[in-house]
Write a protein that binds this DNA or RNA. Structure first.
Lengths: 219, 219
DNA sequence: ATAGCAAGCAAACACTTGTGCTGTCAAGTG
DNA sequence: CACTTGACAGCACAAGTGTTTGCTTGCTAT
């Protein structure tokens, strides 16, 4: 009796056992692990079937090295200690004139996901973060150019000093500046220190998100 | 000498070696693998340091089982075939005045690895790429600020239009500009169009790499 | 100086583990 | 029926590997 993939029942059991074992222990099983846990009476049977599995490309083995079994496509990926990465949805474009896409309106699950390095922040910092591709040069004063990908965290308030995406209602413009609430007025300070700040009032300003990172690919 | 994380140099090397080994082989290294490849004279030294690494929670070990090392947080990822990120070594700092670290002089294996999203380029584009952290504002005209991480590909020549890290010999300065070879002279054009280009001659210029990406984390 | 201690070294030891054999048995095959 | 082949069993051996013990070394505190 064989299954649909051309493997015997025993081979399939072995294959599944290996996957399970690796998932559980983070290292591959020895032949005798397989033998004992699957109730096979001899190591040679396991070796025999492993050889077949390798010939069929289901696993790959590394010489006489103990536990030198690996499953192609099943790869160890570091996700926690020194560098992990996260995925955030790419929701579209951001330009100077048009408003941001509404994260609520887009099915985040369906959106293209991009991976961002852990250097950009912890899991906590990256919660509710989405990515937008920048079109145009309206944000060069924040060191953001055409084609850059900005990572935004959706929020409607901001602390002083945070870089926010703000919509100026009267001017009908979206801009990206550092936010400072100073008494009655709000100062929007370009990241580029040589440029002048903009002053406005709280009711002329809608914060649409906060910048947590920038990714740029250079040709 | 210890590094910032409280591990000795040797322990850090071992830890990095294990990570690398697992990445490469999909199974953990044996003590003797570590010993030989790191040039350690005795297995007991490796065992000794592994014990410390385990006490510090950097790794976890499984009794006397061969290759029973695993790294907490190094998690199985079944989607590796469609992996969206690459890792590149972080080799240090780049400032306006000082020369770049020599990639040849640094053991790339030992360096901290950071992950970069696939959006920054294909595996091919990211070959020979390393990362440097930018210190200072000498490159704002290339839309690169203090604290940014630049991804450089090591190369000593460049095509017109590419953004390169160039060392001006006479001026004793490192700069980051777009490269244009125009007859007898070379034009180094800041990315920021409002700024003036620099002209120099080929023998006053050493190209040290080419920028392939920028990653910025915003507070 | 001297004792204490972390770190490293070398070799011996013992367990783990992959690999041959050597058979057995059932199902084809000519 | 003799002969092959796939699948499995048992077992012994030889690598592959982790541990242990004893011996330096270099440094620090007493």
């Amino acid at each position: 009796m064989r299954s649909s993939n051309g493997l015997s029942v025993r081979q399939e059991k072995i294959l599944n056992y290996i996957k399970d074992f690796v998932r559980k222990n983070n290292y591959p099983p020895a032949i005798r692990d397989i033998q004992n846990d699957l109730g096979i009476s001899s190591t040679s049977v396991v070796a025999y079937n492993l050889r077949i599995l390798e010939e069929k490309g289901k696993i790959s083995r590394d010489g006489k090295i103990s536990r030198g079994i690996s499953i192609p496509g099943m790869v160890l990926n570091q996700t926690a200690l020194t560098s992990h990465s996260f995925t955030v949805p790419m929701l579209g474009m951001i330009t100077a004139g048009s408003p941001l896409p509404d994260p609520e309106a887009i099915n985040v699950e369906d959106a293209e996901q991009i991976e961002v390095p852990a250097e950009l922040g912890s899991a906590d910092k990256l919660r509710d973060v989405y990515a937008l591709k920048v079109r145009g040069y309206s944000m060069v004063d924040a060191l953001i150019g055409d084609g850059d990908i900005v990572l935004l965290r959706y929020q409607e308030t901001a602390d002083n000093g945070q870089t926010v995406v703000a919509r100026l209602v009267d001017e009908n413009a979206v801009t990206l500046k550092k936010f400072y609430h100073e008494g009655e007025r709000i100062r929007l300070q370009p990241a580029n220190v040589t440029m002048e700040p903009i002053f406005t009032t709280p009711d002329n300003l809608h914060i649409q998100g906060r910048v947590v990172g920038v990714i740029r690919s250079v040709e």
